[in-house]
Design a protein around this nucleic acid. Structure first.
Lengths: 248, 248
DNA sequence: CCAAAAGTGTTCTACCTACACCCATGG
DNA sequence: CCATGGGTGTAGGTAGAACACTTTTGG
């Protein structure tokens, strides 16, 4: 529910690009606003007595039930053009918001983009917010039409995520607790949108020294069962803080 | 002057960390608010009919007279704690702002951090804004006490700039048109806060393929005069767009 | 026993590191 | 002529790219 607008920071919103990884595809959690053909990024407003980061965590928690998740503020979208004329009228017509909120929604808004990486299977039931009728994972490469500038926000989130891989590992919170090297590689290939050499990938990843090899193997395939690994969380977080490689 | 507050985006400000390079030091352009001991980052507000980036460019232009400069949005500072109680009272007491603006300034503010890299010598006369009595370059490593969370903003700008060097060249807009390799190296060493090997630096920088060697040399020193280079602007900008190195 | 996919090792190359020598200038 | 700092080259090590063979499972 939209809280009393008096308690909200005017003209400021949050949009979260929530990435999940499933069936070798990157998926994004999207909302279907009521009576609208477009889909939208989960978002929200900022209470004036709350940190912006806190509010982003709240949005994530409300949609996915998850907290304690990697969540990164990546950009503030502040162009005037993102506020489309007629857009509020439509929301009122569609019954998404009440007439009384017309003024609040008619302000010029800037929005803070966050992206999150979550484990697909842990999101038991994606939950729509009160202005939406549905909440679903959509494949990054087969997206429905999106609201306003949400496609641009999503693209930039993915672009920033790709770049971040040069300096950070990913996988924690995006893969199950135990995973095989080929599964981790599939994640990287999906995010990067390119194929990688199996052997070189393994060597490089092991050199990061953030993996712990377990005794278990993933059986069931008609082939040699892969070793399962888990992340050394302490080293993983250190790697994120210190950066993985630097030219200087 | 502060425009009519009705035209301004409420609770939203811009702060610019303007870096200059002079006498082998990184300097930052700071403002001295009237009747206050602290110094502050140049900043401003966002007109509701202007893009946020546009407003940041305007701030830079007003303080330095420069435009067409590398200006990067690096973070939105959105913690509640940055709004200190009593801080508006003090501004009114000091005559920085009029009593009539009390309400406007008492809102909770979030601020968008930008950093800029400018050529020190091109800023003929740093210009204070109307709530400040002075505008000066201050050495990054000998800063006066700063307003509110401006020190935190500055630190983060520098940190982001350092990281950016792994993926981008710097120097254009920060050095004169013509510069020697040792001068460029001094810039890198200053930003990175570490010493680099002369020969390896040269090789690496030339490998970036963004420099044009000129026939001129910098004379005057009691030693072999260094060759002067300039940036190949087209290649320089391409390097910024495409990134200099990537792990994947 | 065969197909499928996983685990391992080697060679070649490119780049980074560390270092030493010569060169041009001003004083 | 000498002190100062700039230009150049090279040997050794490390890391990435390309690539082939062996291993283990299910069917």
């Amino acid at each position: 529910m939209i809280p009393n607008t008096n308690e909200l920071h005017p003209g400021l919103s949050i949009d979260c690009v929530i990435f999940g990884f499933h069936e070798n595809e990157l998926k994004v959690l999207l909302l279907k606003p009521k009576n609208d053909d477009c889909w939208a990024l989960p978002g929200g407003f900022v209470k004036t007595d709350q940190d912006v980061d806190t509010e982003a965590v709240r949005v994530l928690k409300n949609r996915t039930g998850l907290d304690d998740i990697f969540l990164k503020q990546f950009y503030l979208f502040g162009n005037v053009s993102r506020n489309k004329a007629g857009h509020v009228d439509k929301m009122i017509e569609n019954g998404m918001i009440d007439e009384s909120l017309r003024e609040w929604f008619s302000q010029r808004f800037v929005t803070i983009g966050y992206y999150a990486l979550v484990e697909y299977s842990q999101v038991k039931s994606p939950t729509p917010d009160d202005v939406s009728e549905d909440c679903q994972w959509k494949p990054l490469h087969d997206l429905p039409e999106l609201w306003l500038d949400h496609y641009e926000i999503l693209k930039r989130a993915h672009h920033d995520l790709k770049k971040a891989l040069n300096d950070q590992p990913i996988g924690l919170n995006l893969l199950p607790e135990l995973f095989s090297m080929p599964e981790l590689q599939a994640l990287y290939e999906t995010v990067l949108e390119k194929e990688l050499d199996r052997r070189n990938f393994r060597r490089k990843m092991l050199a990061y020294d953030i993996l712990i090899q377990t005794d278990e193997r993933r059986t069931g395939g008609a082939h040699k069962p892969p070793i399962l690994y888990k992340f050394d969380k302490e080293k993983y977080h250190k790697a994120i803080e210190n950066g993985l490689q630097s030219a200087w």
